[in-house]
Design a protein around this nucleic acid. Sequence first.
DNA 1: CAGAATCCAAGGGGATACTG
DNA 2: CAGTATCCCCTTGGATTCTG
Lengths: 136, 136
Amino acid sequence: MTTRTAAQRRELAAIEYNAFVRECPTHKLLSRISDKWVSLTLVALAGGPQRYSELTRTMPGISEKMLTQTVRSLERDGIIARTAHASVPVRVDYRLTPLGETLLPVMRQIKDWAERHIDEVEEARDYFDGATSDSA
Amino acid sequence: MTTRTAAQRRELAAIEYNAFVRECPTHKLLSRISDKWVSLTLVALAGGPQRYSELTRTMPGISEKMLTQTVRSLERDGIIARTAHASVPVRVDYRLTPLGETLLPVMRQIKDWAERHIDEVEEARDYFDGATSDSA
DNA sequence: CAGAATCCAAGGGGATACTG
DNA sequence: CAGTATCCCCTTGGATTCTG
């Protein structure tokens, strides 16, 4: 007898939904570009190719581990390309691929919205905070 | 004598950069909408207002804690609005604000890019994985 | 210079139980 | 119904060290 229908069904639905979310292209993209270092790397490379060490200087807050991890994953996704020059001190360049370039307009629209509406958000936030914790 | 210039300056730069990133509107927006539950809530409410319990059914994977946290933060940012009806069993509706609606085109562009290019990403990924770990 | 490997602390997020 | 509060796990990401 299936007594635990409520909990069971909820659990199943949750599992399915999570699977669906994982499969959802939009969510995949969002989780890619929303990554702090991913977006910053994209912006950094939008201005042209950069070397590994240049990137560490462009993004002073990034650790080597995170930089390596970030460029590797972006390379894997075909968003940036890696070029190793076999010189004496190895030299590696990273640049956006054509696919990566198509991402720039998207980033730009996000940037536009942010710059246009962030003030409204701040205001709403102040108002909300004032309204809830009114110390009067 | 300032001996530790290298490490010190790196550290300072990192701190400043992190502060800059935190202040950056684009990054603020990205971290908002990239949140798994935020984006899903936005999509859910794009189709019209929903009650608290409806949202839990629309997003079966979400916990009550996360739903509350998500709607509260979106309300604070002026992106969604909360309306409590003082009926016997309390009834609360959530809907997008005009500001929240302006976010939909942005979400749509993200969705478009994802649906148009996700295949290329998958291919690149397969190629990359095949090229690196070639079991020959 | 470019990167791999290890260690470890902080916090995001889920499950559960309780409340008005 | 619409939350709130607590516990706890497990991932994320930084610091450090080592290598080709």
